[in-house]
């Protein structure tokens, strides 16, 4: 196993880079990170729109949410990969395809988390903020959302962990992320499938568990702040 790591660690980390496109673990982390960074503000906006008092805004968003939620990620991946170039006339790279799909899915799921949190907050919070003269936007920003996001943190982390794992579906369109590279290594070595996939599993575990721990620590710090007695 040590020999395996010794031979292939660089390939596992970055794929064929710099001879070819960036791949491996670096690509997986980059894709997950970019998806999260892009999906967070989008999910926030969609979530706020979802609970908008104006039906002209909330209904279309509800429609999008229902459709995306009811379709497998893999299927959307195929759609974007095969149909989008036909529409735009430009070939979309595997990485770009994966990123688009992840952002669409993440923002929809995050929107649901945000919307659920906003609905669950006692109505008096928005009312008292408005009664002080704060506008709807200011009341959301300073009163509603800070509480919603704090309560929703465990669900949000759940979604982020799912995102990291979902990048492995890129395998199916030949995206050279870490799962794809692992199977390449397996083909090259041939006799050490258990070890190769064990290392792969461990890699995902470290990424996801690390993120959960980070979120847990953040959550505990926030909680200690609000619960502390004077």
């Amino acid at each position: 196993m040590l020999e395996l790591i010794d031979t292939y660690w660089l390939y596992f980390l970055v794929g064929q880079y710099p001879q070819g496109p960036l791949g491996g673990l670096a690509l997986t982390i980059l894709l997950s990170g970019a998806a999260l960074v892009l999906a967070m503000p989008l999910g926030l906006a969609l979530g706020i729109a979802r609970v908008s008092p104006y039906r002209a805004i909330s209904l279309p968003v509800a429609g999008v949410v229902q459709v995306v939620r009811a379709v497998p990620l893999l299927l959307v991946l195929f759609w974007v990969y095969f149909f989008l170039p036909a529409l735009t006339g430009v070939k979309t790279s595997q990485a770009a395809t994966m990123l688009i799909v992840l952002v669409v899915f993440d923002s929809v799921y995050l929107a649901e988390i945000v919307a659920a949190g906003m609905r669950a907050l006692p109505k008096g919070q928005l009312e008292s903020a408005r009664s002080l003269g704060l506008g709807y936007g200011a009341a959301l920003r300073h009163v509603v959302l800070p509480q919603t996001l704090r309560h929703g943190l465990p669900s949000i982390v759940n979604q982020l962990v799912s995102t990291i794992k979902a990048t492995s579906l890129g395998y199916i369109i030949g995206l050279s992320e870490v799962s794809f590279i692992a199977s390449q290594i397996n083909t090259l070595v041939f006799t050490q499938a258990v070890e190769v996939y064990l290392i792969l599993a461990l890699t995902y575990f470290i990424l996801c568990f690390g993120l959960s721990r980070l979120a847990f620590l953040l959550e505990r710090r926030l909680q200690r702040r609000t619960l502390q007695a004077s």
Binding site: G124, G133, Q147
Partner: peptide
């Protein structure tokens, strides 16, 4: 309405302080 409300203090039955 925001400017109007800013000049009217309102106290609720359930306090509605901002817990965060």
């Amino acid at each position: 309405v925001n400017a109007l409300r800013a000049g009217i203090g309102f106290v609720f039955q359930s306090f509605n302080l901002f817990p965060h």
